[in-house]
Nucleic acid binder design. Structure first.
Lengths: 239, 239
DNA sequence: CACAAGAGAGAGCACTGCTCTTGACACCAC
DNA sequence: GTGGTGTCAAGAGCAGTGCTCTCTCTTGTG
């Protein structure tokens, strides 16, 4: 219902004029929505205002997005992809694991500071009445995968202490997560996995606290604090 | 202008009938607002709906709260006080520091799970167009103070390694924060202070990730994971 | 060329926060 | 007891929202 086929276009290249215009207009709408998001935030995002900016009647936008929520979902996925790409770009697999870790954390924070409203949409309170569909999960995982890969690589190269014979609790950390952390080669025990997930959430805890104003009155030199904190996190996970 | 004096009442006990009714109605409004908040979340909180529930005309509510934002501020302060009180209640100063730490973290998480929308209002994305006034800062600090006191007590009793002669960066961590951590007796060096703030933000990072759905697909046994993670944090800060 | 599908516009519904005016009521001093 | 004062609720109204429905025009295809 989001991209209905033109009647008769069954081939894999159905680029009729209509389709091209449709794709362009869709892109224009999401672009305008992203601009609006950056200005007024997620909850203040108005479909009518987006329509105005694009030069369409508000009702016409519904030809492209079935609802405000669907538009929001698009923005969320795009956002996760953007911060995920930023994290991936910042990761140099050749660098020492500890430096990789801090570099990726820095990239996440930099993206968050540059796109505060988008960050809030992704990692802040869920928009009321809106339930994120499953589609968002893979995109949402990208940053975690980057961080996990750093740990996995470190484990494989022997930097990280491998399984110390600790018990393995399958319900504590999902298989998918274990997979990211290098699967069974070498096997990381529960303690490392718990710490990995803690560090992951802590990165965003730190960024959120800074961005959402919880550090007002506590931390002044936020740049320096963040770098040192991420270093401490790297130590925590064993890098 | 929120509680104007009746003409002539100059004494310190101006409980005329009017004042009493006003106070009661104010409480009724905030109660209704809190109920609504729990149902539809912060951004969906409607002043008109609150008025309907109380049995007032929407315009009448403005006699009590100058704007939706002012009502929101009340809810925010009440929320910080509630979670702060929960944290304080959970802290037994006689217990070993590590147990105190985990107990307080558990209490914060329990409160968050019981009041997800209020938690989101406090620690999630800021409501667009709304700037939290200064009044909220002291209330917001309560949980941090509880956690800081645990560290400070541990340092005083020698459990925590005191200043290792590390450099002291006054801009890294504010004086107020240093004060919470026991001031200069004994002096904790920067590393400990950085870790303390990191741990503080990490507690909420973990709770937020669970509550906002970021752990979907990663952590299954959230209860057990949280306990272990908070234990790791305690280790991180030196408890 | 004709016909069906796609797309935009506009009106309309029910809702929102907020403002302003109007009329009623309670309090307090005299 | 009565009149002035000031508080307060109600209602209408403004500008905005998401969303739906219908009407009309355009476009692509058989």
């Amino acid at each position: 219902m989001c991209a209905p086929l033109t009647s008769g276009t069954i081939g894999q290249v159905p680029t009729t004029v209509r389709d091209r215009v449709r794709a362009e207009l869709t892109a224009e709408i999401t672009a305008a929505a992203r601009r609006q998001l950056a200005e007024v935030g997620a909850a203040g995002l108005s479909l009518r205002a987006v329509a105005r900016e694009v030069g369409l009647a508000s009702s016409a936008v519904y030809r492209y997005f079935a609802s405000r929520d669907e538009l929001l979902t698009r923005l969320i996925i795009d956002g996760y992809d953007a911060v995920g790409a930023a994290a991936e770009d910042a990761d140099d697999p050749a660098a020492p694991p500890r430096e990789r870790w801090v570099a990726v954390c820095r990239a996440v924070r930099a993206w968050a500071l540059a796109h505060p409203h988008e960050y809030a949409l992704l990692y802040g309170s869920p928009v009321p009445g809106y339930a994120a569909p499953r589609d968002t999960v893979p995109a949402a995982a990208r940053v975690g995968v980057v961080l996990g890969r750093i740990l996995g690589d470190a484990a494989r190269s022997g930097v990280l202490p491998a399984a110390a014979g600790g018990r393995r609790d399958p319900e504590l950390v999902s298989d998918a997560t274990a997979e990211v952390l290098g699967g069974e080669h070498p096997a990381l025990d529960d303690a490392v996995r718990v710490r990995a997930l803690l560090a992951w959430s802590s990165v965003f805890g730190a960024v959120s606290f800074e961005l959402f104003g919880q550090f007002v009155g506590s931390v002044q030199a936020t740049d320096r604090w963040f770098d040192r904190a991420m270093g401490e996190l790297a130590t925590l996970v064993g890098l």
